[in-house]
Design a protein around this nucleic acid. Structure first.
Lengths: 117, 117
DNA sequence: AAATTCTATCGTAATATTGCAATATATAAA
DNA sequence: TTTATATATTGCAATATTACGATAGAATTT
């Protein structure tokens, strides 16, 4: 008799707090150079009417589309249909959340007077 | 005749800038609830002589050890041998890098006056 | 309507990540 | 020296991610 963990290899999200899971999901969405590059590009262009992200990246169109989907799902970018193309732009709120998380770490460390190794 | 991409499935790091790859690696190291939980715990405890991270997490010892290794490799934590145990603590510099990256995004967005979708 | 353009989805191949049992190692305690 | 304690490494099973060709859908142009 033997128990088999059919979820072997999957992250045990149940065991962590919502906050921990949320920040992890947010960071994970950004944790790929292609997706960082997409954010960089969206920041660089003046308007947010951008239908040429594919041409800017060294990846095939389906791959870029997939990365855009992940960024959108995580709330890092917003996408509006603009005729034939799609207008993508950064959703500042998500980055504020990340920033807020880092600020929390810094504050916590200061309270400890950095008496660390 | 057909070309086969033997690197299918791997991230094409070569095609992106060093900065893009660096921030992606940093974020990736944090992009898991268990590793966020480890950071949370390191922040919570007063001293950084901590040999009980394993007991704090709902994961087996080898799994925790692996997560600690990833955090250490990415520079998010530091670890010193302290007798029998190992003293882990947060490396503030890494979090400052993430914070700096987010600040750059915010500044860039402000310069655009947020004239977005 | 037909052709073009832009984006999304499907299917598939390959690598990466997660998790843990078993085991190894290294120091502390007995 | 033996035992206990703490951490790391190995090996493996399973899921997740990455990438792209082929294809589909939807709006624009001709």
């Amino acid at each position: 008799m033997q128990y088999i963990n059919i979820e072997m290899g999957t992250t045990k999200t149940d065991h962590f707090t919502d906050e921990q899971n949320e920040i992890a999901i947010l960071l994970k969405a950004l944790a790929h150079p292609a997706r960082v590059a997409i954010i960089d590009y969206l920041l660089k262009v003046d308007t947010c009417i951008c239908g040429d992200i594919v041409n800017e990246l060294p990846l095939a169109q389906p791959t870029v589309s997939q990365h855009l989907k992940e960024l959108k799902n995580a709330g890092l970018i917003k996408g509006n249909i603009e005729g034939n193309a799609i207008c993508y732009c950064i959703d500042e709120k998500a980055f504020q959340k990340i920033q807020h998380y880092c600020t929390g770490i810094s504050k916590g460390l200061n309270k400890k007077n950095n008496r660390c190794c």
